[in-house]
Write a protein that binds this DNA or RNA. Structure first.
Lengths: 357, 357
DNA sequence: ATGAAAGCGCTAACAT
DNA sequence: ATGTTAGCGCTTTCAT
């Protein structure tokens, strides 16, 4: 590997002139010298060593990304969008970590990022508290947190980019109600995250808007086996029986994300319940694959590309200006109607005919 | 950030002693000094700067990973498995790049990896030739190529880890034939990759084994729109009409991967063709989500975790021993039977009744 | 057993 | 306009 010295020697100049060429400081060199150095660089196929540069400057064009699991297509998609934004807009690369929402893993990753000199990181944390993120900020990381909405801790030094989860919950419930459903349910995995809480709040508010005419229970995954972000469909499948055993059974179910919905649909199917005839389903995420399951899954889509772009921009921006006041960016979701929602069977009959089927 | 000097000063020793402690060279220090240094490290919360270390040693615990697109759950899954293996077995981190199978992008990533001092990379290339990989090797990268099978260039310096794609194609055709299908088809996107070729070869060999009793056409995606690895389901959806228009129409279709199959199933559905009654489908990958589509997708599963482990091990091993003879590792796939395959409708009737429906 | 010192490849004052 | 030089934080001979 050629070094800056080799280039300098070949071009007959000093290393600082080479450095100036590398950094495009045309005003410091005569055009003649500049091009002579360029020529030397080319003929040696010289590529500056970023490690040496970083040791000197303290900067490295690398962005950390922590997601629960890239096996969840939502985060695979997110990683793709973030990488694209980082790469094309800032020439940054991505250091990826799967955390399984585990605080230890997150902390280890922060340690490593810091030791690699990485200064900016995007985190899909969603753990209940963000103290470990604040700690990372204190140690010098620019942290952008995804999917935790606004209104977190008052004096946080973490930036937040999130879909409007409250609105997502609201839209989902509204869509089912508009189709005539009255008994709804909201499905979530066992653990708690901020985004789930907000989705549920939106869901509940829509339910109670019209004077208690609707019901909306929150169903938490209660299965012996532990499911993580990589096995959400399995969890949804297992939770189908929880739904089927509810009395009265809901006719419309909202799930906190699409993979859960896809598993649920499959599980209901296995129990002899048809979607949407017996129960309508609304997922959340807007995964491309939701369009291709059978029936097509209605879903509240989040504007991933925009959010990814915002996160990358903010993370990098803050890493160079640590004193920026922290901000919250909220993005509006949009419901995509497909075939998994229809009017409930019962609604076809006049209300007086409320006899057992 | 504390440096090794701070630690040395606090412990009242030289920086070289601190370095020796950091690297666990117990034999070079008295136990007393050793623990005094440890104490100083702890009280300063000192973390060695890996950049400085790397500049000196030339090594960094980072592994590059190039995949076509993490939006394809297969590669999201692969990334997860690779990251887990790298992290738990070697304490390596992952630098991720999405290449969209674009040579330019791959080349740029190689450049960057090299400039970051990364010495090991796993590539899901599948472009027709591997010259650019050899070039990366020549420049100092340990390259492990995924999904290109054995028997590539004779004197390659790239390691290969791959599922046995020939066997996968064979198994898929065999499964359909065992269910009574005689007119098969194999669906692939437009471009050419090594793995596709091998899958097709296995498929064809099984087709022709019993003396030309079966037919098996290869159907290439021919749609105006360009689809990448992120939109395979869309492509499958669009290709449904290509299948539906074949005369005679195949009763059993194999797709080169699961996402294509999932899109195809949806597209056939939209055309009024039922799976598996009118056409049976076999995918390849063994994605978890294949179990949850409706009907459940029969798929030839690849042993991802094992392959991921092998790739990580080999890449890191070779990065420290560049003179290892290059090797090919082949992993056996296994067919997972689900509901997307059934006997063809026609097989239920005696053969003489071959009238138009 | 411990320390002094050179140097990895680059950048950025500071000189000239 | 160009060159000299002092580090960035660590590892590693080589002395002692």
């Amino acid at each position: 590997m050629a070094t800056i010295h080799d280039v300098a020697a070949l071009a007959g100049v000093s290393t600082s002139s080479v450095s100036n060429v590398l950094n495009g400081r045309t005003e410091k060199l005569s055009a003649e010298t500049f091009s002579r150095v360029e020529e030397a660089i080319r003929s040696l196929a010289f590529r500056p060593n970023r490690v040496a540069r970083q040791l000197k400057t303290g900067h490295t064009p690398i962005l950390g990304l922590l997601v629960p699991s890239t096996a969840n297509p939502m985060y695979g998609q997110l990683a793709l969008n973030i990488e694209a934004a980082a790469q094309t807009r800032f020439d940054y690369r991505l250091l990826l970590g799967n955390t399984h929402r585990d605080k230890q893993q997150e902390a280890r990753m922060f340690d490593d990022l810091l030791s690699f000199g990485v200064r900016a990181v995007i985190v899909v944390s969603s753990l209940d508290d963000e103290r470990h993120l604040e700690e990372a900020v204190a140690r010098g990381l620019a942290v952008v947190s995804y999917d935790r909405g606004a209104g977190s801790d008052a004096h946080s030094r973490v930036d937040h980019v999130s879909p409007d989860n409250y609105q997502a919950g609201y839209l989902a419930a509204d869509h089912l109600i508009a189709h005539g459903h009255r008994r709804l349910a909201f499905l979530v995995p066992g653990g708690k995250t901020v985004s789930r809480g907000e989705k549920i709040a939106g869901f509940r508010d829509r339910i109670s808007r019209d004077g208690g005419r609707y019901s909306g229970h929150v169903v938490q995954g209660q299965v012996s086996q532990a499911f993580g972000d990589s096995e959400l469909a399995d969890l949804g499948f297992a939770m189908a029986s929880q739904v089927a055993e509810m009395r009265p059974m809901p006719t419309g179910v909202v799930t906190v994300n699409d993979m859960l919905a896809i598993g649920l649909m499959s599980g209901l199917n296995g129990l002899g319940l048809r979607v949407p005839e017996d129960v309508s389903i609304v997922g959340m995420d807007g995964l491309p694959i939701a369009a291709f399951v059978n029936p097509g899954l209605t879903s509240v889509a989040m504007p991933l590309a925009d959010m990814a772009s915002a996160m990358v921009e903010r993370a990098i921006e803050r890493s160079t200006q640590p004193d920026l006041p922290p901000a919250d960016f909220l993005f509006q979701p949009a419901l995509i109607a497909r075939q998994s929602v229809a009017a409930p069977a019962r609604a076809k009959k006049p209300r007086s005919q409320r006899t057992a089927p």
